[in-house]
Structures are given as structure tokens and as C-alpha cells.
Amino acid sequence: MDYRDWVMLQVLNEYKNITKTAEKLFISQPALSNRLKQIEKEFGTKIVVRGRNGIQFTPEGEYLAKNADKVISLHKHIKENIMNMNQNVTGTLRIASSNVFTRYKLPAVLKRFQKIFPNIEFQITTGLSRDIFQLIYNHEVHIGFVRGDYNWSDEKDLLFQETLCVASKEAFTLKDLPVLPRVDYTTDILLKIAIDNWWRNTFHKPPLIKMEVDQVDIAKDMVISGLGYAVLPSMILNGIDNLHKANITDENGLPIIRETWMYYSAESLELNTVKAFVEFVREFDFEENNA
């Protein structure tokens, strides 16, 4: 088996379908089927069986498929170390970034960094911060940009802070919020806890949630359209002047803050690409580069 065979098994394990796997790998179905037969010949056993709903792995096939992730990860690790030996800042940087950071900050960061280090390639994964934290925790990426401070015991840098605020198309007072329509949205657990705690400490009745959406940017758009108010991070409201806004505060009257962090491991700094990127981001002026 070679590296491409392990990738094929990894993708096949994901899709459980010959057609979709071939499309994903940009090879023909006959070529894929032939390669499976060669693997079965090499190990002297069946590894897949075809059914009406796709393919299924035999126990031997499952064992190979489960080890595909390990082999591919080891291959990446070896390749990175070999490329690192020549002291050039080159290779692939694997980054996981929260959805909001990706949209409002990451493009400017990557654009400036690539001007300095044009030989670096990027693999970007996005999602909610809890998912990003899991990726960096499992060492599946080099860098993680997360919103909120998770229990990360390795290296991290605080990049910037922002306030949380109530935003509405219509004028409002905070005391009237319990009877006003609210737009709620799916977000990471730390932000949800912060907003829920603020509400419980401020009001004695639940919010009047009239709409629930799956992304904070959609909630922002609904607010702009006058469909209700939402509690939003101030960063996504930069440049929007036709909204009424009010920061939310804790029991001491201090603004409730949303933090953005860069997580990475001390071990990963041995790679020239990671070290160069971390040092660059530390010096990046996020205030100057507001969305």
C-alpha cells in the first residue's frame, strides 16, 4: 500500500460509497475498484462488500480504515519535519478558526502574512469555538482561533477583546427588553452562558424570543431588517451606523467582555511555519484592521 491507498480508505470510510469516493478523489470508479482489489490481494482478505446502500467494510477492512487516519497523520508529521530541516518558512499551515473570526479578521491576517511568506499554503477549518478547541486539543491543526477562553493548558495569546451589546433597529431601553421581540442564534457555549447569566441577573422573566437562527450573522441581518433585537458581539457591528446599541454589563456595572484567543502547542513552535505565523499574529494590529 502507498500513501494514496490510505487516503482512499479514509475517504471511503467517510462516504461508504464508491461513486462519491471516486468523485472526491478525482479518479474513475473502475480505477478505485481495481485499487481495492489490489489491496485485498496484498493482504489476502476481503476488505469491503457491496450492498444495495453502498459498501460495508469487513472486520479486516474496518481495521485498515481506522488506521488510515494514523498513517496519514504520521505522513504529515514526517513531511513537516523534513521540510523544517532546511530552515525555510515553507509548507502547509493547518488553521482552525471560529466562524466569526474567519469572516471578520482571518482574511486580512492571511493576506499580509502571505505577502511576507509566499511559499506557505493554508488548510483552513471553520466552526464553532468548541469544535475549534477540540481540533487543537487533538493536535489535528497547528493553530486554533477561538472565541472565549477554554481550558487550554498549552501556549495561547489573547488577541483582542470586545464588548457584548444589545442591538436593535428601533430605539429601546434595557428595562423594556423582556417585552420586545428577540432574535436568538446558535453560538458556542461560553457566549451563551455569558448572555444567559446576564439576563438572569438583570430580569425576572424570560426573553420574548420570536426568532431563532443558526448563525450570528443571520441574526445581525434580521436585526438590521427590524425583526427584533439581539445580543451581539460588538465586532460584527463595526461600520453599521443605523442601529441602536447598548453594552450589557455585569452586576458591578462593568461591560461584559468577549475575548478572542490564539491557541497552539509549544511543540508546534519547532516548525518554522508555525513559529513565523505565531510571531506575526502577535504583532498584528487587530484594532487597525477592524472589519
Rank of each mutant, 00 (worst) to 15 (best):
V89Q: 10
Y63L: 10
A68C: 01
K169V: 02
N99D: 14
G144F: 07
V179R: 15
P118N: 10
G61T: 00
I72N: 01
L135G: 04
L177M: 12
T173H: 14
K105M: 10
E155Q: 10
L135N: 04
E121Y: 10
V179Y: 14
L159T: 07
N151T: 09
A65I: 02
M85A: 04
H75G: 14
Y150A: 00
M85K: 11
F122H: 04
D157T: 06
E62N: 12
E162T: 11
T58R: 05
K79M: 01
P107V: 01
V166K: 00
Q134M: 05
Q161M: 11
S98C: 11
A167V: 00
I78V: 05
E170S: 13
L135V: 02
Q87Y: 14
N67R: 11
E80D: 15
N99L: 06
I55V: 08
E140D: 14
T163I: 08
T58S: 05
T90F: 04
A96R: 02
L93R: 00
P181L: 00
R130H: 15
E170H: 14
T125R: 02
F145M: 04
S168A: 13
F113K: 03
R147V: 14
T163R: 13
D149N: 12
I72R: 07
N81V: 05
F160W: 15
T125K: 03
A171G: 07
L128T: 01
P118L: 03
L135D: 03
V89G: 10
T58Y: 06
T58C: 03
E140M: 10
R147Q: 15
D154R: 08
H75N: 15
I82G: 07
P107G: 03
A65E: 08
L110R: 09
K105C: 10
H77L: 14
F122K: 06
I116P: 04
N138S: 13
V100P: 03
N81S: 09
N119P: 00
L174W: 04
S98A: 10
I55H: 09
N84D: 13
E121S: 12
A171I: 03
Y137D: 11
F145V: 04
G91I: 05
I132H: 09
K111C: 02
G148F: 09
